[in-house]
């Protein structure tokens, strides 16, 4: 029924789009305010990284990383299956992924 108190569980992610470094992140939550898909929510603990409540809905737009005032606090991870390969010109071997 229509509950006044709502409890949520962060959905288990098949792919983790974002990881936060709690040592660098100061919980300013600016990333939350620019996420157009609304997957990030403030942590119950002040000063802590946001909760990625809906990782499966991420568009990988990267605006959270772009606005972060503390470089390294958020990392956007390209899922393995979507990583692209490249190689040094003139070398057949040595294919890398990113």
């Amino acid at each position: 029924m229509r509950a006044k108190k709502v409890t949520v569980f962060p959905e288990p992610a098949l792919f983790n789009p974002l990881t936060f470094d709690a040592e660098i992140c100061n919980g300013c939550n600016m990333c939350i305010d620019v996420c157009q898909v609304d997957i990030l929510y403030p942590s119950p603990e002040e000063g802590k990284p946001p909760v990625v409540l809906y990782p499966g809905e991420c568009w990988y737009g990267g605006c959270c990383v772009a606005i972060c005032p503390r470089p390294g606090a958020i990392e956007l991870r390209v899922p393995l299956a979507n990583r692209v390969h490249w190689k040094l010109k003139n070398l057949k071997q040595d294919t890398k992924t990113g």
Partner: peptide, 23 residues
């Protein structure tokens, strides 16, 4: 959305447009 997931992520992983061929 190229800035972070492509330019940013590939550069961080070592892609060099002066040397590398992108598949």
């Amino acid at each position: 959305k190229t800035k972070i997931p492509i330019l940013g992520a590939y550069t961080k992983a070592g892609f060099d447009p002066n040397k590398d061929l992108l598949q």
